[in-house]
Amino acid sequence: MEIHRFEKVWIAIALLLIVGFIATIAYGALGPGVKMVDASGGTIDPEAVAAGESGTAFDDPGVRQTGPNEYDVYVVARQFQFAPGTSQPIEVPAGSTVTFHITSPDVTHGFNIAGTNVNTMVIPGQVAELTVDFDETASYGIVCHEYCGGGHHTMEGTIEVVPQAEYDGPGGS
């Protein structure tokens, strides 16, 4: 086998690069603790969600307080609306840890808090579960980034991270 010595050098460097990439990603998971969306949200019957009879918090989506500075946000993403998010903003206080639970009663949607790393697919039958720290006061736009039908481009929302002092508790749905 004739392989030029330069090429051997390059193979070694390329492998090093690959290992370096994998190491960076492992660092991101172990150091700053970035977690991937996974199966922890479980499955759900989309038609029950559509009918509002799933027997879960998705029947009355919105923000819930679960502990000091800890909140659960249940979001139903449907053609072409985040509930909550579109008609009224999702409101959480700064300095809180928020777990989003998102599902869809109809087709596949996306949920991206634009300009942040909070980004997930919303697949009927699956519950996307993501925990996020909101440290600072901010106002973000949410976009549905998966084509979901003819009105897809109108599917947007907002999330307001308000100062602790101004937060008057989860407003329900």
Binding site: G141, E146, H152
Partner: peptide, 18 residues
């Protein structure tokens, strides 16, 4: 954060900007 596969990627329905 501008999404792909979107006819009108600007915000029309809610008040937000990229």
């Amino acid at each position: 954060g501008v999404p792909r596969r979107t006819a009108e990627p600007e915000y029309n329905v809610v008040d937000a900007t990229f």
